[in-house]
Every structure is written in structure tokens, then in C-alpha cells.
Design a protein around this nucleic acid. Structure first.
Lengths: 210, 210
DNA sequence: CCAAAAGTGTTAGGAGTACACCCATGG
DNA sequence: CCATGGGTGTACTCCTAACACTTTTGG
């Protein structure tokens, strides 16, 4: 039985939640876009396999990565029985400049609003990843993974709005974040063209489950 | 690569959360208890494999079953690389009278408080299942899976207390359940030795994510 | 001086928590 | 008649959601 790992790689750019997809060069589903992934090696853990694939696709290490679900319908891959352990990863958009992994020639970012048709059952995988991300956003601090080290509260709000797909009230949002007590205000301001915005740093030891 | 499914089977009996474990008859870990499970067949989905194992162990069908996590550390099984897709299941204690599957000779229920040493990394799997069950209990209606069709509010509260491992206030508990609006009060009372208790039925279309 | 984003408080409703007594029954 | 579990309401706190104006800057 063959086992693959697929990684749904999210980022927030241009105020939109985006996902990295690769165009398949070989059948089945040749020419269609798919979630990046590949077969696990014999001597690596599933998470290591996911990290390896992620690095090959994006050139990025040290990002948030979490197992999502394992898909094992015997007919999900026309080549035969393939089990896929799906992961999702969050990457801050400022780390993406180096978007040049080995296979990256055919990799492209898509806004969740404008997805192409996807190979295999990847539409379902993606839907599941989005749902998980939305839920985690509400009761953990994963959202900070999508920002640079220093960020403004408005940038943080953009991340939340992009993921949840809805506008939020500025004052309520700031109060909620403030009373989490996990932001360190800096004595720095970002000149943004208009009134400068104060910068903050995420100041919790780890990604907290609240 | 070989793939197994393991199923953490929970029930609540004698006011305690219990889990079904089987004693291993062959090495490795011979004589130790383990979470029931087995290899997947080539032509069945992961969920079907889990349902099959569950039926073989307990003789029960039509129970709540949900995928938990996939464990894939290359060294988790001394026999070699084995990936395990873990599930957890909830069974109402009144369905357990038929606890006589094929392999059931060495199967036994254990209270979560008094677990034996477990084979492989099954201690971790079990801890993960318990955590998931506790979380799901708070924001879904999975708890009803552990009761008979007709039950009293006190019985429901016992289920919640057994899973969460803490006492709850009777009035607050009843108010919370009542305002979920998913219980149908029956015109029946259970004679319990003291004052009769009103019976209820779970009356939602499906297990609601609230 | 104007456009644009930054920043800030109050109020009302709902949910959770703490808490104590009477009731119906079987023995 | 008494032991046992069934059943009920109120007050407080906290979180959420709705809502509008002033400030600072660059052009």
C-alpha cells in the first residue's frame, strides 16, 4: 500500500487567503492543478515527509505545520490504492520572496475565491483544510504565523478577515486581541502613507491553545 | 508500507469512562494490552476498515466513529514501518450486552483511571482520543451517543462528568442542555427507587456541531 | 485642506458560574 | 418517617456585538 503526504499551504497576501497549487505534468489529471505532495520515504516520519515536500515546493522551513486528515477511499486515485495523509501549513507572506523550490516551475498561488478545477479529491481536502483553519483561528493563535515578526493591528485584522471571509469591527477586534495579552507593543511605527501605525510582536512562548 | 487502523472504543458504565483493550497474544508486547485494530484490506476504505474491526471486537454496528489522527513514526512498531490511522468510537453501554466478537476472548473494559501499561505508542493514542472527546463534548452533541435512546437528565450529566473528569452543577447543566433545544421530553418516567425521573429523547436530525 | 487609515469607549444582551431548598418515592 | 436522588431560580460576572468620531499624515 502506498502512502503520500499532501500539504495545503496557505498564505495571506493582497488581503486574500491564498493557497499554493502545482500543475500536474503527468497523468492522471495531467495539466490540472493539485495540492503539492508526494510519496513518503521508508525511513522518515509523516511529519518529516510533509516538511520535506514543503521545502521542495517553497524553499521554506520553520513554518507552522499540522496534520489535517487521512484520506483512504480505495478509488480516490485512478492508479490504485493510495492513502494520503493531508497536512496544512501557514507561511508568512514575507518569507515567500524565495518561492523557488525545485519543482516550483509549475507552482502558483491561488486566491480561495478563484480556484481552478482540482485533481483527485483535492477539492475536498482543501475545503477540509479551510474549515480547520477557520476553527483554529478562533481558539488558538495560529493567525500570527501568517504575519511578519513585526506587524500592525490592522495587518493582523486583515489576516483574520481573509481567513474567516467576513469583515470584523475594528474596536471589538482590538479589544479581543489586547486582552489575550500575547502582543508586545513596540516603540516603532510603520509609515504607511497616512497616519503611522504602531508595530507589535507576538510575545507568547508558543502557539497557544487558548 | 503497511497501514493499520486502531480504534479507541469508549463507553460510560458505572459512572466511569471506560475503554476497550485487548491483550496481545503474540509478540511484540505479548501479554500486554493494546488498542484493538488491524491491517486494512486492499479494497476497503479506512472508515470501513475501522467499522469492520469494531464489529469484530464488539459485535456492534451503527455507532459513532470518527478519525482521530495518523501516527507514522518509523520506529513506533518494532516490526518495521507501520502507519496507523487511529479512530475513536462511542458506544452506549446498553448495546454492550452482546460484547462477544470473534477476538473478544481477551478483550476487556478499563476505566480511564486504572489503565494497564499499553503496547506500542498506544498510551499516546489514548491520551489524544480522550483530549479529542473532551473537546468535542463541549461544542457538539456526541455525548448522546453514549446513552440509550431514552435517558434521564441525571444519566446525561453522569456521561459529561465521566468524560470531563469533573463534577458539574446540576442546575447549570440542565439549563445549558435545555437551551440547546435538542431534547424531546417524553411523557414517561423512570422508576429509579426514589422519585421517578423524567425521560428524554435526543431530537436533532444529526449530531450537531453547534 | 482633503483623503485615508489609525486609534479609541460605551452600552445592551447572552452565557457561564455560584449557590440552597423542596418534592416524590421506596423501604 | 427518613434517606435518596429529582427537580427548580436568582444574581453576578464576563464576553460579544453594535455603533461614530477624532487624530495624524502625505499629497
Amino acid at each position: 500500500m502506498r502512502v503520500t503526504v499532501d500539504i495545503v499551504i496557505f498564505t495571506v497576501r493582497d488581503e486574500a487567503l491564498q493557497v499554493l497549487l502545482v500543475k500536474r505534468g503527468v497523468p492522471p489529471f495531467q495539466g490540472q492543478y493539485a495540492i503539492p505532495g508526494g510519496f513518503t520515504h521508508e525511513e522518515e516520519s509523516l511529519e518529516d515527509a510533509a516538511l520535506r515536500e514543503l521545502y521542495e515546493e517553497t524553499g521554506v522551513r520553520d513554518v507552522f505545520l499540522e496534520q489535517l486528515y487521512t484520506f483512504g477511499d480505495p478509488r480516490r486515485d485512478p492508479r490504485g490504492r493510495i492513502i494520503t495523509v493531508a497536512y496544512y501549513a501557514l507561511i508568512a507572506s514575507d518569507k515567500l520572496s524565495v518561492t523557488a523550490g525545485a519543482d516550483a516551475a509549475e507552482a502558483k498561488w491561488f486566491s480561495l475565491e478563484k480556484l481552478p478545477a482540482l485533481a483527485f479529491d483535492h477539492c475536498r481536502v482543501l475545503a477540509y483544510a479551510l474549515e480547520r483553519l477557520q476553527n483554529k483561528l478562533e481558539y488558538t493563535t495560529v493567525g500570527f504565523q501568517l504575519l511578519q515578526e513585526k506587524f500592525t493591528l490592522s495587518e493582523l485584522q486583515v489576516v483574520y478577515e481573509a481567513i474567516l471571509g467576513k469583515r470584523m469591527d475594528k474596536r471589538n477586534f482590538r479589544r479581543k486581541i489586547r486582552q489575550l495579552g500575547i502582543l508586545k507593543p513596540l516603540r516603532e511605527w510603520r509609515r504607511t502613507g497616512r497616519k503611522p501605525a504602531q508595530l507589535f510582536r507576538f510575545a507568547a512562548r508558543r502557539i497557544a491553545d487558548l
